[in-house]
Structure formats: C-alpha cells, structure tokens
C-alpha cells in the first residue's frame, strides 16, 4: 500500500495538475453517466392495461355475481396473455374469492368479492382459500401463513411477522356491470396502490 499524500491545499489554490485531474475525472463521469439509465434494460415492468378486463374463470367463462357461489374461490389468471406459457406464470395467478355469508358474501355487488395475488408473501408458495367451516381463510401450504379473506392481511405464520407492506397481499379492484359480469379495474402496481406481487401492499 503506497501512502497517499494528502492533497495540497495551499491557500485554497489548486495546482494545475490537480485541476487537470479534476477535469479528467469530471469528463469520465460525464462519459459514463448515460449508462446508469441503461439499467432499465434489466427489469421487466408489468404491463398496465388502461382498460378494465374480464375475470376469466378456469372454464373460460366470465365470472358473474349471479352464478358464482358464495364462500367459494377460483384461481384466475391476470393479466391474461395470448401466450399459454405466460398464463402458467404463478405471478399471474390470483385467488378470486366470494366471501362467506358472515363477511357479506351474499351481496350481489363487487363488495362480496375479493381478488388477491396467490403468491404467498413469505416465500412465494401459492396459498389458496379454504372455505371449510372453522377455516374460511387463505392458507399457505409451505410454512402455514394465513390470510384474512376480508383484507388480504396475514394474521398468522411467517408472513404475518413481516413488516408492512410485506404482510398484506396485493389485491385487484373489481366492478360489476349491469348483467352481473365482474371486471378488473386497471391496476396501479405500486405498494401504496394495488400492491406488488410477491412483495406486498400497504393497507390504506
């Protein structure tokens, strides 16, 4: 290790050499600055649709308030892609739940429904909703995190111990049209909006 001399600051004057070095350093920084932005090459941001989209059930039909059973859940793909491979993506699977009667599941409007990302906030297993009496909650098969179907908040297991926003499941906003068909409103993929899949959401 060579011992470095402290920079000479005699009377606030910088020597010509030091000034040159400074310029060279500044030039180097400027030359490579644009490449910082190139970091955007790496992430793959989720596409945000501007329009509402259908809740497509596994049988291919659109979910309807008049036919979907109370206290029942299905796995729904969103955003649905033309590419069947992408539709197998766990990050696109959502649990579409009609709440049990005691939580208001019998109403025929959007408040009876919930749609949460199925990716467990702990270590990304896929949890699902269990309608049995005494359960009526989302349960993760891996380490037993449990989710409140009303809010998507983890109330037991490792996911519940995580700091916000990682203790609340991302959720999608729903609306119902005149025929009772259920639609997904355009999402805002941020922790304070609809949440980030696999990461979480701030409870409003």
């Amino acid at each position: 290790m060579s011992q470095r001399q402290p920079p000479k600051v005699d009377g606030g004057k910088i020597s010509r050499r030091d000034f040159l070095k400074l310029l060279a350093a500044a030039g180097t920084v400027m030359t490579f600055t644009p490449f910082v932005e190139w970091g955007k090459f790496l992430p793959n941001p989720r596409e945000s649709n501007e329009e509402r989209s259908k809740v497509v059930l596994p049988d291919g039909s659109q979910a309807n308030v008049n036919t979907f059973k109370v206290n029942h859940a299905e796995a729904v793909v969103y955003p649905l892609s033309e590419d069947p491979v992408l539709n197998e993506e766990a990050f696109r699977t959502w649990q579409f739940i009609r709440l049990p009667p005691e939580l208001g599941g019998e109403k025929n409007d959007a408040t009876a429904f919930r749609m949460y990302s199925m990716v467990c906030l702990h270590l990304w297993c896929l949890w699902k909703y269990w309608p049995e009496d005494g359960r009526k909650r989302g349960e993760c098969p891996c380490h037993g995190s449990m989710y409140d179907p009303l809010t998507g908040e983890a109330f037991a297991g490792p996911a519940s111990l995580q700091a916000p926003p990682s203790n609340v499941l991302p959720s999608l906003d729903l609306e119902v049209d005149d025929e009772g068909n259920i639609w997904i409103k355009p999402p805002n993929w941020s922790p304070s909006g609809n949440g980030v899949v696999g990461y979480g959401r701030f409870l409003a």
Binding site: L86, H122, Y199
Partner: peptide, 28 residues
C-alpha cells in the same frame, strides 16, 4: 427461487430494484 428472490427483496432500499433487475417479474 422464491426464497432467493424474497431475500433479495428484503435488502433495505436497493432490494426491490435489485430483485426486479436480477429476477425480472415472475417465474417465466
């Protein structure tokens, strides 16, 4: 993979961006 990604995610400040950069979004 999910363990690795959520660990990356848990890194303060840089974590989520690092996760996006190294893992992309989703299993595909």
């Amino acid at each position: 993979i999910s363990i690795a990604a959520s660990l990356t995610n848990s890194i303060p400040i840089l974590g989520p961006d690092m996760m996006n950069a190294f893992f992309g979004s989703g299993f595909h």
